[in-house]
Design a protein around this nucleic acid. Sequence first.
DNA 1: GTCTTAGCC
Length: 709
Amino acid sequence: MEVDRPMAPDLPILQFGDKIVEAVDKNPVVVVIGETGSGKSTQLSQILDRRGYTKYGIIGVTQPRRVAAVSVSRRVAQELGVKLGEEVGYAIRFEDRTSRNTRIKYLTDGVLLRESLSDPKLRAYSVIILDEAHERSLNTDILLGLMKRLMKITSTKLKVLITSATLDGNKVSKFFSDCPVLTVPGKLYPVEIFYSKERPSNYVESSLRTAIDIHVKEPEGDVLIFLTGQDDIEKLVSKLEDRIQSLEEGSCMDAIVLPLHGSLPPEMQESTSDPPPPNCRRFIVSTNIAETSLTVDGVVYVIDSGFVKQRQYNASTGMYSLDVVQVSKVQADQRAGRAGRTHPGKCYRLYPSTVYMEEFLDATIPEIQRSSLAGSVLYLKSLDLSDIDILKFDFLDPPSDDALEDALKQLYLVDAIDENGSITSIGRKMAELPLEPSLSRTLIEANEYGCLSQALTVAAMLSSETILLPTRRSDLSRNTEKKRKHAPDLPDGSGFGDHIQLLQIYEQWDEYNYDIDWCKDNNLQVRGMKFVKDVRKQLAQIMQKIAKGSLDIRPSESRRERKKDYKNLRKALCMGYAGQLAERMTLHNGYRTIGFKSQLVQVHPSSVLQTDEQGMYPEFVVYHELISTSRPFMRNVCAIDISWVAPILKKLENVNISKLSGGSGNTKKENNTQVPAVPEDNVSVKVLDEHQSKIQAARGRFLARKGKM
DNA sequence: GTCTTAGCC
């Protein structure tokens, strides 16, 4: 994203206009390697527009982030001197600023996927530019597969441009039958790279030393430090502040230290783009948010720990984990590049060059290989690609068969596909909803049970992470009671757990007429709650459309209900969470998941689920997700009655993965066995594939180091 | 006893 260039820009890409147009004229697909500062995001669309590519359709440019779609389109409208929303517009969730006159449209890749549900050939478009494709978001990867498929349809005149990173441009080209690769140089200043002789035993300390060293010896310029998470960031910020204070007055310029990560309030995130006070050096201690999502102006020095936190899904256990892993070469280069935006810069890598060369992967493992695929598989099924067996869908980097089969099993359990793997009418409705299958299934069931309004609220609340802000220390000391983690007046889920609590919180907010101050008083994230309101409205609209009738979706409707056992809602949740059941151990509060592979798990400490007089949790719960951090946890749980799920247990016994994944057409033999319903205790440990083992190895090294701190 | 980051007409 390039938005900070002057008008009438002398961008390098403009000299390549003829070359680009020639390549696009002659080829259906072109890969563009656009280095930082090349202006590709704003100029590619304009170049093609000038050469007549908008005569027969729109030029669509996808962005992985909403803010980027908005800011880049605003920039382009400005350069063309038109009103945003007219010839140039954007479309993001909840907001479509395009009109009949729109020729150039910036949109998030998610929005384009939604559009292609109703228009699979994307006939509205003459050109699709998949920008920032090297970031390899889940949605981008699905689009890449769909584009490849579209290109094979002879009737399409669609042109596709894909931007890529230097390191894997050839790979993308190969994927698209060796299409041409154009490289457009950027406007990055040179960045000198320094490597450590060895890996530091403690990278917070090592960052601290390096930062102070820069401060004392180097001329002015801000310092951007990449660490992995909030904890380490806070640690380093306080240490840096101490050290700077202790420096002899007048020995060097003033300095301020700023943390930067996603859980900071937006005002604080934005403050990093304010100009620094004169004669003052800023130290910005950041997560990877500063790698792509936020640009910090004035950075001349970068310190790269070489690590990042990554969420990954393990299909064989159904569990997510949050792991500290080594960055990829692409990522390390991206970090270094942050030092060269306005001046020649310097990047201090806290690892030896041999590590970069020999241990780092070229590119980050794409999200599609680190996620649960139930939603994506359902989406693809709903496109009716009759010629394609889902296990053979042509991905740039295919997910494992395990991950695809896991997705099929999940979809079967929630009735989205039948035993032959064909999408059901329920599945089609589910695909319309921008939710994970577990929640879309819950909504459909809730509509049958007459508790749609409540389910809409729960689904919307779960769509937004970070609603409940962490308790302030002052609250903790005032209140020693165990289960009072949140602001004392917030509802507690009446003992049933987190889903019910989320519902009750929203209902209270509704009662207070969506008052912002009420959120603040109760320590709820305002941004998150507003998002929930938007999501809820959108989901309600889609449900109205699916049901073809008017449904009662007012939050106030359910509040009046007399019985407070939320039985119907909890039953509906059972249908959605069919593969996410757990049974408590007899003697303690640990749980065992009931599914294809049984796991020993705990209720996440943040849960409001309550224990009975004997101090025991409910016998059965459904959970929203499994996440393995310090231990395997169930996050967001809801107490249920086992009698409600008898049909699901029956279904669990009868899953035939061979049939689900396409039956006779499937060549995989080893999986043609029935999956045992009662999980075996001695499940053999899966052999990790190459990526996984690399991650594990890096994680091991990291943990070993952390232990020594 | 806990939280990298994006995103869905």
